[in-house]
């Protein structure tokens, strides 16, 4: 189960490091760093149920306002 209680020994230190990680980066560079970070952490967690729970919580409350680049196909 996804642990949403405090698990970080020093939350303020972590938060500062996370923000500092993106210092001097363009938004695009930051996206790259975030994507790598997500993959690294996801592999470390490993448990598909926990990851699914985390993904659902991350997405909660966001109304989709985009689309994808594929086109409907009919033949």
């Amino acid at each position: 189960m996804l642990n949403t209680e405090t698990n970080l020994p020093s939350p303020d230190d972590f938060y500062e490091e996370l923000v500092a990680l993106h210092r001097d980066l363009t938004p695009e560079q930051s996206r790259q760093v975030n994507a790598r970070l997500i993959l690294l952490l996801a592999n470390h967690v490993g448990d598909p149920a926990v990851l699914r729970e985390a993904m659902a919580r991350a997405r909660r409350g966001i109304e989709p306002a985009g689309g994808d680049a594929t086109l409907p196909a009919r033949a």
Binding site: R31, Q32, N34, A35, R36, I38, L39, G66, D68, A69, T70
Partner: peptide
Amino acid sequence: KSEASRDFRDAALD
């Protein structure tokens, strides 16, 4: 097929 999909692809390749 989206920017996020490209970001993860590029991250995996790196």
